[in-house]
Design a protein around this nucleic acid. Structure first.
Length: 269
DNA sequence: AAGCTTCCCAACCGCTCTACG
DNA sequence: GCGTAGAGCGGTTGGGAAGCT
């Protein structure tokens, strides 16, 4: 894959927590050279780690633009919504949360949101009992979603394969150009404005800082590596769940939230 | 203060996917 | 078509911090 074959003979890879010196070595190397082929990074950077370990350390900890600290309410809601839509697709969810890594989101989910959602479902089932008698409106909103899903399937002429094959996944610059994302992505269409102002500033600074770094260029990004029909079906499922669980009162027209997936589902940077 | 339990997070492991020869 | 290697993803684990008794 464009990497120089490494000489055989397995070096002993260090495991466990990274020391500040190791972090510095890795950071300095990548900022100067770019990561290129990960398996060669530890050798060239003078680290006794596996390429995989270096990659993870960079993505989850050293990469510029990472947001640390507590998740905001909005981020929390975004995660919950996207988890309903996508399931445990942490990397896809993280694409909608600038500065957050899939690992971070995954950890947050397991330690906190999982419980929260369980509670919400419990609550929701009570609401369902309450509204079960007037289900006609629920059916209406479900049907309208179903219609949209069908329309979406027809109107979207791109495919998952096309999306994935033509757009290599982005590693380093994932957090770039998020203003564009915020203005057009599907989550926002869903009415979940994220309010990433602070983060945008951070990204801008990072863009200035990093603009001359050799990362191979030609990066593109497919924000959602799933086709629009898939997203629509997921949304349909999610919307139905929300109605079922009593998060949305029957009669509330979900479609008025105006998510035009055919336009917003995929974003190229 | 000491011991125990729970929680959180960084890192690892194993699997799948993709590119290439 | 097959084998191999690299990259990426999701699940799991281990260790330390925090909280409780």
């Amino acid at each position: 894959m464009g990497c120089q074959p490494l000489e055989k003979g397995k070096p002993k890879h260090k495991k466990g927590l990274w020391s500040p010196e190791e972090d510095n070595k890795l950071r300095n190397y990548i900022l100067k050279q770019g990561h290129g082929c990960w398996s060669s990074v530890p050798i060239k950077a003078g680290l006794q780690r596996s390429g995989k370990s270096c990659r993870l350390r960079w993505i989850n900890y050293l990469r510029p633009g990472l947001k640390r600290g507590k998740f905001t309410k909005q981020e929390e809601e975004t995660i919950l919504t996207l988890h309903h839509m996508l399931g445990n697709k942490w990397s896809q969810i993280s694409q909608h949360l600038p500065g957050r890594t899939d690992n971070e989101i995954k950890n947050y989910w397991h330690s906190y949101l999982k419980k929260k959602e369980a509670k919400a479902k419990e609550k929701g089932s009570h609401n369902l009992m309450k509204y079960a008698s007037s289900s006609s409106d629920t059916m209406d909103s479900s049907n309208s979603l179903q219609n949209l899903a069908t329309q979406g399937t027809q109107s979207c002429n791109f495919t998952k394969e096309a999306c994935q094959s033509s757009l290599p996944k982005l590693l380093f610059a994932e957090w770039l150009s998020l203003d564009q994302v915020n203005s057009a992505n599907s989550v926002d269409s869903f009415g979940l404005r994220n309010g990433f102002d602070q983060n945008s500033t951070l990204q801008e600074a990072a863009i200035h800082d990093m603009s001359d770094i050799p990362f191979g260029g030609g990066y593109h990004r497919c924000l959602a590596n799933i086709s629009a029909p898939e997203i629509l079906n997921s949304e349909l499922k999610y919307a139905n769940q929300m109605v079922e669980n009593g998060f949305i009162l029957p009669g509330v027209d979900l479609m008025s939230s105006n998510f035009s997936m055919s336009n917003d589902a995929i974003m190229y940077i």
